[in-house]
Design a protein around this nucleic acid. Structure first.
Lengths: 218, 218
DNA sequence: TGTACATCAGTGAACGCGCGTTCACTGATGTAC
DNA sequence: TGTACATCAGTGAACGCGCGTTCACTGATGTAC
């Protein structure tokens, strides 16, 4: 018999309450939205009194911040993993973009928590924004490896931000149902692939973009 | 003496309650978020009993849908307006992108309402999604005028969607405080200009993008 | 191996609150005659 | 010009509800001796 049961309760002590609450949040957030997620429901699902929650989190905000923190960490892991494997760097970088959209779609709870809360609310280390910065750095590094010749006078961080913004835009429009769907209609992967190619290609060609950004670095 | 007072009450009848409630929502949504906006606060701000609201809206959802509907209409107006004026078509199209970001920043209440609610919730005509579709058509038309030679085998609607997604991504990341700020750092306008140039240029060059999207139209 | 005890993760009842919505009503407006 | 009356935009009190959080507590765990 394991020291604690993965689902449900063993007895008076849950044994794995923190993890269970995070999982409950991940279940509720996608279907109710971040604002519609309640501690009461999470506690009920897990089979615990609402007050038990306060042994592991300082409150609602804290639980959501924890979800966001874990989300960014997992996100970075997924992006990094997708860059591994066969193919030339450009192909592998394309896979990173696909991994971005897949994460947003398959982990809507994480994704919503990650981008819902205002980063100014958090300070210090180990916060969601810390993890977010690490994920961004990873994207920059991936971009550097994929295009070792660089982007002319353009900072790779600038290009990475561009790619991130496009991915985020496609992911959120898609999640909100604002993207056209149907047979014969390009899907979000087509949209991302073409956009990323254009951004990266445009940046490498350089000339057109230098005017707007010369001398600026992120 | 005017038939109704622009601010506050004239007497028992408000005279302009519907407009006043929409304005109240536009004031609260940016500071509290769409989920944090309450009918009670809106009614109090306007100086009216909470029940009065139901003479003009069927409920909370309906009020927010009205805000979204007006938002999309105003949005389309602003985008169209920014395309007018001097300059060659490409310059003017660039201004449209800037107008997008300006709208998102200056009208956060409208913007949040426009993209907060799931379009599937609405049906029929005169709904937010109807206005949204008109705004998108306007973007497509602007793109057609700016690049009359087209984009090779690429549907202008595909390119327009790309531009919309990038703009939306930049606008939402910026609003959430996820974009780096500071002197010497490219701002969101730099980001959008460079991205749009790359997307449009990449689409005109064609070759690289055709593989991913040949035969597909929006 | 047994027992006393510190630790701490839970309970459950209660709190104050504010929400969206309803109801029967009332006051103001404007129109018909 | 005056009056009766229909219309309708408001009132205000109440509803049932569920929220996040607190509190004194209790049961289980594990460690020291």
């Amino acid at each position: 018999m394991p020291p604690w049961h993965p689902h449900g309760r063993r007895g008076y002590h849950h044994g794995n309450l923190k993890e269970a609450l995070v999982e409950a949040a991940l279940g509720f957030i996608p279907e109710r939205g971040i604002g519609g997620f309640t501690l009461a429901d999470a506690a009920k699902l897990v089979g615990v009194s609402p007050a038990a929650l306060y042994r592991h989190f300082s409150g609602r905000e804290d639980l959501i911040a924890e979800v966001a923190r874990r989300g960014f960490a997992l996100f970075a892991e997924r992006l990094a993993g997708s860059f591994l494997g066969p193919g030339d760097p450009v192909e592998r970088f394309t896979r990173v973009g696909e991994a971005y959209l897949r994460f947003a779609e398959q982990e809507p709870g994480y994704y919503a928590a990650m981008f819902s809360s205002h980063p100014d609310l958090y300070g210090g280390s180990g916060t969601p924004m810390n993890e977010a910065a690490r994920a961004f750095e990873l994207l920059v590094e991936t971009l550097r490896k994929s295009f070792p010749d660089g982007f002319g006078s353009l900072d790779p961080r600038f290009v990475a931000l561009e790619v991130w913004a496009l991915s985020h835009g496609i992911a959120t429009l898609s999640a909100a149902g604002h993207l056209p769907k149907g047979p014969g209609v390009p899907d979000k992967l087509d949209l991302l692939r073409a956009g990323v190619l254009a951004i990266v290609h445009g940046a490498r060609a350089g000339s057109a973009m230098d005017g707007a950004t010369s001398g600026k670095t992120v």
